[in-house]
Amino acid sequence: MSELIKKVTQLLNDKTVDVFIGYGKGSADRIRAIFVRSAEQTEKLVLNSACTQNLAGYILKQEVKHLGKIGVLANVAALRSMLQLASEFQVKDGEVLALFANPDGTLTEFIDFHSIEVFLTTTDTGITSDEQERIAQLEALTVSERWNFWNKEFEKCIKCYACRAACPMCYCHRCTTDVNQPQWIPVASHERGNLDYHLMRAMHLAGRCVNCGECASACPMDIPLNLLTYQLISPIKTGFGATAGMKADAVYALSTYKPDDKENFII
């Protein structure tokens, strides 16, 4: 903790970064993102097990960018978000400085994408066993049982778009949902609108999702949205050998192909 404060103070003092995005104390027992812009503000930094939010989403926010060079306290998901964003030409190498807090309290500083790539090769980036189990449970159901499950979940959706706003990969200036010539996804949060929206979002995140879980934790109606995209991680990995957010120069799995891609359903 003191390590972090010391480091961020130094980064701000020698102007390596102008703003450092870290965690601070929030309401009640919550943790929130804070934007540290001076050495005095570093006192507000907090680091504990509740610090799970993927802060990489903020590095693309217009008003944060205006503050100057960004440093960010990145967890594994945030590091992967950065690489994925890099592969989609949203961040340039060296543009954002990332600090990673090791379990032993030390800090690892990443100033370029290469070091993140190397670091991630020895890091567990998979989804949790709990999440795996939930997916397995759903997969064990019949198709119509799954339809009913999702129907019930989507019924709760109020289309507040918190999932989209919280997702570091949902950075489009105009989301497909908001494209209205023609209006492809119904804006209404009725069954059809919700089904369309969530399937569209899952499909657009297939091969890009870095399993940070922000969508599900942002959802005020507690819809397990992350399962939709998590479920696609494994077929994309086994089928095409691709995992999102591991290489800064990766080619998006769904914008490329291999002549011998395996399938068993095309006649």
Partner: peptide, 14 residues
Amino acid sequence: QSLRCIGCGACAFV
């Protein structure tokens, strides 16, 4: 106040 606001509509909808 709004630096960390991500611009979703959760507040308005609840």
